[in-house]
Computed example of a mutant assay.
Amino acid sequence: MRDDFTAATIQTMRQRVSEKCSNPSCRAPTSGPSTEPNKRLNGGRAAHITAASPGGPRYNSFLDPEQRKDISNGIWLCISCAWKIDSNEQLYPVQLLLDWKSQAENLAHNEWCIPTIQHGGWNTGEELEKARSFVFAFGFLREATFWTKYRDGSVLPYDCFMKLQWLRNNYVGQNWNTRNKHWSFNPSIKSKQDYILFLLNHLVYQIQQQKWLTVVNNGNYEQRDIIFPFVNRYYPTEIENHLIQSNKSALFELLEAIDELRKQVDA
Rank of each mutant, 00 (worst) to 15 (best):
W122N: 09
K130H: 01
W100A: 02
W176G: 01
Q103N: 13
G139L: 08
W176M: 09
V155T: 14
S87T: 15
L128M: 12
D152C: 14
P157G: 11
I117Q: 06
H119Q: 10
S87E: 13
L97M: 12
I189M: 02
L141C: 04
F185D: 05
S133K: 15
D194T: 08
L128N: 04
V172R: 02
D86Y: 04
E143Q: 14
I85N: 00
S191I: 14
F198V: 03
L97D: 02
N186T: 05
H182K: 07
E129A: 06
Y92W: 10
Q193Y: 07
N110G: 02
F185A: 07
S184V: 00
Q165I: 03
F140D: 08
D159R: 13
K101M: 01
L97C: 04
F138R: 03
S154N: 15
K190G: 08
N180E: 08
T116M: 06
T148C: 08
K192G: 01
V135A: 07
K84G: 01
L96M: 09
W183A: 02
F146I: 09
G153Y: 09
A108I: 03
W183E: 03
G120F: 00
A144V: 03
R179M: 12
D152V: 09
W100I: 00
L141M: 07
Q95H: 11
R132G: 04
N177C: 15
W147P: 00
K163A: 08
F146P: 02
S133I: 08
L156T: 05
N177G: 10
F146H: 15
A108P: 06
P157S: 07
D159M: 12
T124F: 09
E126Q: 13
G120T: 12
K163M: 09
E143P: 00
L107V: 10
